[in-house]
Design a protein around this nucleic acid. Structure first.
Lengths: 262, 262
DNA sequence: TGGAGGGTTGACGCTACGTCAAGGTCAAGC
DNA sequence: GCTTGACCTTGACGTAGCGTCAACCCTCCA
């Protein structure tokens, strides 16, 4: 007669596992000896080995009991089910591995390559790291909201960088984001933005289907800028003076500036 | 400002998940509005998306916090660790799939093919299903104890089946295992066994290195027989009268039968 | 003004055990 | 007979990542 430890050792499991199988009714509780110890016979050893065989093959404990009593066809059916689950799980993990491989290449954090190259180009232009970080976070929001439009949008943004005015704007914004920016820069930035907005307005700007102007994401983008640097509010105000409202999605004010709206 | 449900929807998770991230300190608790609702800004949305990106790639939540603050090399290191764990997990599941594929082929329950063919041969010979089941359980114990010797052992057992006496023994045992066996069969079985034992004894029998005669497994095998059918005890007694002790591991008695041992 | 559809905290559930805690038991050596 | 170490007992909490009640409060819309 075996003690629980001997039985467990024979089957290559821990005593705790055996007790667990008792608890869930998978292995019947054996007789106790005079001192209360569990005492096992050979059939228990056989049962335990069968249980471990199925468990090692990926069978959930909750199904092992039925499988041990099942006929051949029911058994085969169960095996199919379990194999299918294993396959799904493997597939999931393979997907995870692919995704994590994408993350290895720097701090891109799930951003598509188009965005990464745009950020790199900003750095080349001399845009401050602080601004680039802000851009990155913004694009994270955009990529989450419109994963299928991101390439189109980025193509447009890349083109915009060919305009020297846009480059100038980014550089001015970089200076503004410094701890102690020179005076007058805010106004200069607002002037450039207003010019670019005018240009975009007449040429039609970047219009991508599926990106509705009243989308929550635009509000989030605007909010993100203000959360990142509250001084941005000043720029918004200056733009309003110049006849534009909003930030990531500039719109021409209906009323001329200086006039009360109501 | 977003409610928890809106934030969750934006990132493609459930509100419960967001609360969970608060609980474990992965995402900071936001301000509450007048009615106690959590109110989130854009940075929270960015953080949440970053968290999900890493989590979807298989990063444990407990490590995501540090990863988001890590520099590039620390980050890459962590990615390596996680990828390694994913690889291990996939390997484990692949192994499970292979094992479960083995189980598909009938009721073999992880027995090596040599044992399966032996059991099949027993059935061909006309051995009762009850005896075959008992044999199967016995071989499960043997295979668990000596997985590396099972082929050797089975070769010997296959050879034994070429002896008509052994075939006769199995058939007699089959009859005995019936609910109402004829008289005298036990004696016949004992006679055959004694003869076979004598034969094995003079020829040296099956000796496989690594299988010590005092092994616990032999006790288990003997116990298994008695647990499966207590009437086997009668056969053990008859064998003792014929000068043999044990069952799966017969040994010649030192004293002649009928003499007191002390 | 009522009801639907949000939100709040608190708690248990899931898997397959690992790991204490606080004892009682057994076998061996002195 | 005593100690010591290894083993047994039950009970309970911990793990990962949330899902799912329960019981209640808040908001918005017809």
């Amino acid at each position: 007669m075996l003690t629980i430890g001997q039985l467990a050792a024979y089957a290559g499991v821990t005593a705790r596992a055996v007790r667990h199988y008792h608890q869930i009714g998978l292995l019947p509780e054996p007789e106790r000896d005079a001192s209360g110890y569990r005492r096992y016979g050979a059939t228990a050893a056989v049962s335990l080995i069968k249980i471990r065989t199925l468990a090692d093959a990926g069978t959930p404990l909750s199904e092992i009991g039925q499988m041990l009593e099942a006929d051949a066809s029911t058994f085969a059916e169960a095996v199919q089910r379990i194999d299918g689950r294993l396959r799904d799980e493997i597939e999931r993990l393979e997907t995870s591995r692919k995704q994590i491989a994408q993350l290895t290449a720097g701090d891109n954090l799930a951003l598509p390559p188009e965005v990464i190259s745009y950020l790199d180009r900003l750095r080349e232009i001399g845009v401050s790291e602080r601004i680039v970080d802000g851009e990155r976070d913004g694009w994270i929001l955009v990529a989450a909201r419109w994963p299928d439009h991101i390439r189109e949008v980025m193509a447009g943004k890349h083109a915009q960088l060919d305009d020297p005015q846009m480059v100038r704007l980014y550089r001015v914004l970089s200076e503004i984001s410094e701890d102690d920016p020179p005076d007058g820069l805010l106004e200069e930035a607002a002037d450039i933005m207003a010019g670019l907005a005018e240009q975009a307005y007449t040429s039609g700007g970047i219009n991508v289907g599926g990106m509705a102007y009243d989308d929550l994401a635009f509000d989030l983008l605007d909010a993100l800028v203000l959360e990142t640097d509250p001084r941005a509010q000043r720029l918004v105000d200056l733009m309003r003076e110049r006849g534009w409202t909003g930030w990531n999605r500039l719109e021409r004010l209906a009323e001329p500036p200086g006039q009360p709206l109501s």
